[in-house]
Design a protein around this nucleic acid. Sequence first.
DNA 1: TTCCTTAAGGAGTTTTTTGTCCGAATTATA
DNA 2: TATAATTCGGACAAAAAACTCCTTAAGGAA
Lengths: 152, 152
Amino acid sequence: MVLSRTSQYAIQALIYIATQPPGEPVLNRDIADRLNVPAAYLAKILQSLCKHGLLDSFRGRLGGFCLREGMQRTSLMQVLLLTEGPDFTKSCILGLKECTDETACPMHFKWKPVKNKIIAMMNDMHLEDLAKAVQTGKYRLADLPAAALPAA
Amino acid sequence: MVLSRTSQYAIQALIYIATQPPGEPVLNRDIADRLNVPAAYLAKILQSLCKHGLLDSFRGRLGGFCLREGMQRTSLMQVLLLTEGPDFTKSCILGLKECTDETACPMHFKWKPVKNKIIAMMNDMHLEDLAKAVQTGKYRLADLPAAALPAA
DNA sequence: TTCCTTAAGGAGTTTTTTGTCCGAATTATA
DNA sequence: TATAATTCGGACAAAAAACTCCTTAAGGAA
Ligand code: FES
Ligand code: FES
């Protein structure tokens, strides 16, 4: 309804990494297993997050991915601007090229406050906090694996 | 950010048809020209809206598409349930299969009220009203055609 | 030094979405 | 009845998104 798979995987992975002890690289394979997501695809996403400075990567034994220093307080908006593109916040819900009060489509003045809510929400959520929420055990980062479902 | 192209075209077309005198079929070609969208693709969408009972279609001379009787008060939600699928309102922003308070992802309790806003908004907007808004001339259904832009 | 493990990077495949084309069916009108 | 205008329906094509595979480079440890 709102985010591409790529964005979803990126956010899930970043939160998961943020739940892990800082400085200890996390394996792509482990993230993919944990999130139940295609590993080769996730690898591309992590690679891109490295290039954009959110993650550090290390090759070889004891390699993997870490949150870059100071990136614990990265907001989801920062992530989404990378994964969805810089126009993420600028779009008209009907697809018009411009979305301003002066070029309003018939949905504009209803949509605008909702859109602003979404933007505020994304600006307001940070990896750190989401990771802590996950660590309480009250929230899920991925679907329950089949093994965890009640036996048939 | 939120709607597929198909949904955008469908809504635009329905609003446009709703601005036209009822009972006088509107040509696919005219809608496509007016909205500046691909005619052959739009035709498929209109065909599907017919099958789902929102529109009536007429072939041959004086043919075209009309809003089905009583469909002036169709809500955008009704349209979106057709174009985005019946799970439109059910999705987790992180892509989890379930989105309930019991199966919450770490974004759930922030996202839920926003999502409910979107749903309420879509339930609240009806073709009739949107069409009237367009008829005031204050709102755009499509990007300005190149012809309407200030000369270079 | 050699082996194993890991990410990097590039090319390619599959699936979904978006968009095109064309012939057949239908209808008003001359 | 012939003709032109229109939607219908199916097949096809292109583009974008999601996903895979393979080779190379780099790093740690035996
Ligand atoms: S112009 Fe359409 S939402 Fe702003
Ligand atoms: S479970 Fe993720 S938004 Fe509800």
